[in-house]
Design a protein around this nucleic acid. Structure first.
Lengths: 123, 123
DNA sequence: AACCATTAGTGCCTAATTGAAACTAAGTCT
DNA sequence: AGACTTAGTTTCAATTAGGCACTAATGGTT
């Protein structure tokens, strides 16, 4: 019996949901969304809000989010050129599920810390 | 004016929520949770459900989830030793927010694909 | 005019993470 | 004995991520 028939594959390697999931469920994407939740921001404005992002990582993540239609990028030909990033309606719809995860971390941080302490004391 | 007073830091590098978020918001963790959502599984049972996981990545992710109190690991001293992984109550509470993200990917995959096509055609 | 700061990035290099493949060790089946 | 299962660990290669320096255009200061 090589395979249990109750074991169904949940995600194949080419599953589009899995691929999309991997693109939106990373820390920088989620943190950028939470910044843009407070209104449109410029490149360095986002950078200042997010301690520890390199320009390179920020650029890459913003491009990825833009490609996926989650944020918009508008260049204003002002004094020094201004690039404004804002949530699209699609991006706004992502905020709700994100908030659910974020609030889970807030309400359960104590329990997780307790679990970690227990686990570490047994090693 | 070096810094805009409307720009508040959202996540500092040592923010516990941010650290916890980074631990639970990765693809393998989420996929393992969705497998265990259907009931307890053994190591190789999970591996068979998740196409493309290496033993190493699976072991590492399972350990991390166990340390955070999200899954339990019980060794049964049967024929070839059986190790059963199951969701803890804390892990079950994580499923709801996760489902919100997952269902977002399902309902918005088409929109994302359309956005990608538009973006790619302009490059 | 020279100098410095800001804007939004890009490029190089190194460090960290991930993954694939082989190996371990204990037990079952034929 | 030999093959196969269990649940991993180890080793090495490849991909990815991050730090730092650099660019180019514009504005203000001295």
């Amino acid at each position: 019996m090589p395979k249990d028939n109750t074991e169904t594959k949940h995600f194949t390697v080419d599953c589009p949901n899995r691929l999309l999931f991997a693109e939106i469920a990373d820390k920088w994407s989620m943190m950028i969304l939470s910044v843009l939740d407070t209104g449109p921001h410029r490149f360095n404005g986002i950078k200042r809000c997010l301690e520890g992002v390199s320009q390179k990582s920020l650029t890459q993540t913003l491009r990825k989010l833009e490609r996926n239609g989650i944020i918009s990028r508008t260049v204003r030909s002002t004094s020094p050129v201004a690039v404004e990033y804002a949530l699209t309606p699609l991006g706004m719809s992502l905020l709700e599920p994100y908030r659910a995860i974020y609030s889970w971390t807030c309400t359960n941080l104590q329990k997780v810390n307790a679990a970690r302490a227990t686990y570490d004391s047994l090693q």
